[in-house]
Amino acid sequence: MSRESDVEAQQSHGSSACSQPHGSVTQSQGSSSQSQGISSSSTSTMPNSSQSSHSSSGTLSSLETVSTQELYSIPEDQEPEDQEPEEPTPAPWARLWALQDGFANLECVNDNYWFGRDKSCEYCFDEPLLKRTDKYRTYSKKHFRIFREVGPKNSYIAYIEDHSGNGTFVNTELVGKGKRRPLNNNSEIALSLSRNKVFVFFDLTVDDQSVYPKALRDEYIMSKTLGSGACGEVKLAFERKTCKKVAIKIISKRKFAIGSAREADPALNVETEIEILKKLNHPCIIKIKNFFDAEDYYIVLELMEGGELFDKVVGNKRLKEATCKLYFYQMLLAVQYLHENGIIHRDLKPENVLLSSQEEDCLIKITDFGHSKILGETSLMRTLCGTPTYLAPEVLVSVGTAGYNRAVDCWSLGVILFICLSGYPPFSEHRTQVSLKDQITSGKYNFIPEVWAEVSEKALDLVKKLLVVDPKARFTTEEALRHPWLQDEDMKRKFQDLLSEENESTALPQVL
């Protein structure tokens, strides 16, 4: 008996699950189920560990084997000379395990699969056993689809999209007709009724959600790893209520002995410091949205989908001078704002400069500016000194954290500008005749005249004003913003236009 009217009423009120309206889709043409990776026989039982391990490696599972009696060998002398080797079968990115008779397991190899009674669906509900069930008529011709799209860092995100009359449910929550939600590992998919569980979705590319604290899981769906560094790992996640993407940084307390840091400095109150950081608001710094204190720290951040500045300059790639100017102007505005709010970044580098898009002209935002507030000064500097390429001379020669101030950030900005303009770092371990530390503390950077011949004198002058060993003589952010190279009204107008595109209400910060 159909429950279409009941569920449609529920759909009209929406769902609290991570779902959002989605535009129309072009329906895929039908194809045989076997060619799409559906096993030839149905099963109602969950797999054992041996079955799972075989399939996850990209080899055929026991459900897909063919009797050897149906095959015969071709003698080598009868092999056609022009026969080309077969292409290897792509490894599946996800697996659906059937929970009921009449449904088959599915190895997801393609990027898009339609499910329903219509014969054009890649996964067609046409098993005779299924057709005899009382629920068969409640399934729509095109009930739902599972697909994946390219996300940040060229990774993939799996989604389920509801197109049914009676509802598609993920972990008992209604997706909603015309809406989608991301699928995470071990999600249970039910059709027409929330208790009519048909599939379990296994994402073969992500970790299980159960490793994360419950308070975090209640608000966010964790997904793929976006990156990792000395101070922690960053994962893509989704807000459950809105389906908006965020980035979540995970900082290990054990790695940084944060408990010991608190004992050594009783004034170090991470929760208080995070609340201060959350109040920071500038178009060129990453917004801190939320914070969870569990076995590790979880910092929920605004997501930038254009990648890191590092990706644009790695491998001796240089940027156009006009692009360097647009990016560097924004970096200076961001660091100036942090300094005005009493925050020294201490870890400025291309990896911590994020881009809003893949376009050459785009907004940038500074991230990882609050680590000293979370990890403690000593722990952070011990970590950073392991990779000193961007560290100021006074940091390398000081004991502990004494003896330096916000000028350290201006040195790091000078190193970043040098790399963007030239395509190579000013200080490098590859210069074996002088140690990296000695290069930095003496201010002897690697200047290649033929490379810098293409760079304007004004740009080079600003680099020199920032890479000054004496912090008292080094340019401040205010002085850098007043430098002739940055007195470019076309560049500032472009920045204002980019801000307006992102948010019509965002105004250009005042600069002296």
Rank of each mutant, 00 (worst) to 15 (best):
S2V: 13
R3A: 15
S5Q: 09
S5C: 12
D6N: 08
V7C: 13
V7D: 10
E8F: 04
E8W: 05
E8P: 05
A9S: 03
Q11N: 03
H13K: 13
G14M: 06
G14S: 13
G14C: 10
G14T: 07
S15M: 07
S15W: 13
S16W: 13
A17V: 08
S19T: 11
Q20T: 08
P21D: 05
S24N: 07
S24A: 13
T26G: 03
Q27W: 08
Q27L: 10
Q27V: 10
G30A: 11
S31C: 07
S31I: 08
S32M: 04
S32D: 07
S33D: 12
S33H: 13
S33E: 12
S33I: 07
Q34T: 12
Q34E: 12
Q36S: 08
I38S: 08
I38K: 08
I38T: 13
S39Q: 11
S39I: 11
S39M: 02
S40F: 04
S41V: 10
T43R: 03
S44R: 10
T45V: 09
N48C: 11
N48G: 12
Q51W: 06
S52Q: 13
S52P: 03
S52H: 10
S53M: 09
S53P: 10
S53R: 07
S53G: 07
H54E: 14
S55Y: 05
S55K: 08
S56M: 10
S56V: 02
S56E: 08
S57A: 05
S57Q: 04
S57R: 03
G58E: 08
G58V: 07
G58S: 07
T59P: 09
L60K: 04
L60W: 08
L60I: 04
S61C: 06
V66K: 04
V66W: 10
V66S: 07
V66L: 04
S67W: 01
S67A: 08
S67N: 02
Q69W: 05
E70Y: 14
Y72E: 07
Y72G: 14
S73C: 10
I74L: 14
P75V: 13
P75W: 09
D77V: 06
D77Q: 05
D77R: 04
Q78G: 12
E79K: 05
E79C: 04
E79M: 06
E79L: 09
P80S: 12
P80A: 10
E81C: 10
E81M: 10
E81I: 06
E81R: 06
D82A: 12
Q83Y: 03
Q83M: 05
E84L: 07
P85E: 08
P85L: 06
E86Q: 13
E86K: 07
E87L: 07
E87A: 10
T89K: 08
T89E: 04
P90D: 03
A91Y: 13
P92D: 04
P92Y: 13
A94M: 15
L96R: 01
L96D: 01
A98K: 10
L99N: 07
L99A: 06
L99I: 09
L99F: 12
Q100T: 11
D101Y: 14
D101A: 11
G102D: 07
G102M: 15
G102W: 13
F103C: 03
F103Q: 04
N105S: 15
N105R: 13
L106V: 08
L106Y: 11
E107W: 14
E107K: 15
C108H: 01
N110K: 12
D111G: 11
N112D: 09
N112K: 13
W114D: 14
W114M: 11
F115P: 00
R117N: 00
R117I: 00
R117C: 01
K119S: 06
K119T: 10
K119I: 12
S120R: 12
S120Q: 15
C121Q: 03
C121S: 10
C124Y: 09
D126Q: 15
D126F: 13
P128T: 12
P128I: 01
P128S: 05
P128Y: 05
L129T: 09
L130N: 06
K131E: 08
K131F: 12
R132D: 08
R132T: 11
R132A: 07
T133D: 15
T133L: 14
T133E: 04
D134E: 07
K135P: 07
K135M: 14
Y136W: 08
Y136K: 03
Y136P: 03
T138Y: 13
T138M: 05
T138F: 13
T138C: 06
Y139N: 00
S140M: 00
S140C: 01
S140Q: 01
K142C: 10
K142Y: 12
H143K: 02
H143L: 02
R145C: 12
I146C: 15
E149I: 09
E149Q: 12
V150K: 00
P152T: 10
S155P: 14
S155H: 15
Y156V: 14
Y156M: 03
Y156A: 06
I157H: 07
I157Y: 04
I157T: 04
I157V: 04
A158F: 06
A158L: 01
Y159R: 01
Y159P: 00
Y159S: 07
I160D: 01
I160L: 10
E161F: 03
E161N: 07
D162I: 01
D162F: 03
D162A: 07
H163K: 08
H163A: 11
S164H: 06
S164M: 02
G165D: 10
G165F: 13
N166E: 02
T168S: 12
F169C: 04
V170N: 02
V170K: 13
V170Y: 11
N171L: 05
T172Y: 13
E173G: 15
E173N: 07
L174V: 10
L174M: 04
G176Q: 07
G176D: 03
G176R: 12
G176P: 14
G176K: 09
K177A: 05
K177V: 04
G178N: 05
G178V: 13
G178P: 14
K179V: 07
R180P: 01
R180C: 15
R181G: 15
L183Y: 05
L183S: 02
N184W: 05
N185P: 08
N185I: 11
N185Q: 14
N186F: 06
N186T: 05
S187L: 03
S187V: 05
E188R: 11
A190H: 15
A190S: 06
L191Y: 02
S192E: 00
L193W: 01
S194R: 07
S194N: 15
S194L: 15
K197L: 03
V198N: 00
F199R: 02
V200A: 13
F201Y: 14
F202S: 08
T205N: 04
T205H: 05
Q209K: 13
Q209H: 11
Q209I: 10
Q209P: 15
S210H: 00
S210I: 05
S210R: 03
V211A: 13
Y212L: 00
Y212S: 00
K214E: 07
K214R: 11
A215G: 01
L216G: 11
D218W: 14
E219M: 07
E219Y: 00
E219K: 05
E219S: 07
Y220F: 01
Y220I: 03
Y220S: 01
Y220K: 03
Y220W: 05
I221D: 04
I221G: 03
I221L: 01
K224V: 06
L226G: 02
G227Y: 00
G227F: 00
G227K: 12
G227L: 02
G227E: 15
A230S: 04
A230T: 14
C231N: 15
C231V: 08
G232S: 05
G232V: 01
G232D: 02
E233W: 04
E233L: 10
V234F: 02
V234M: 01
L236G: 04
A237Y: 02
A237I: 01
F238P: 01
F238E: 01
E239G: 07
R240Y: 15
R240S: 03
R240P: 04
R240Q: 04
K241W: 06
T242N: 01
K244M: 13
K244V: 12
K244P: 03
V246C: 03
V246W: 15
V246R: 10
I248S: 08
I248H: 12
I248K: 00
K249Q: 02
I250H: 04
I250S: 13
S252P: 12
S252N: 12
S252L: 05
K253Y: 02
R254W: 08
R254V: 01
K255N: 05
K255D: 00
F256S: 03
A257Y: 11
G259F: 14
G259K: 13
S260C: 15
S260N: 12
S260D: 09
R262V: 04
R262I: 08
R262C: 05
A264P: 15
A267K: 13
A267Q: 08
A267L: 07
L268Q: 13
L268H: 15
L268W: 11
N269T: 10
V270S: 14
V270G: 14
V270W: 11
T272D: 03
T272K: 12
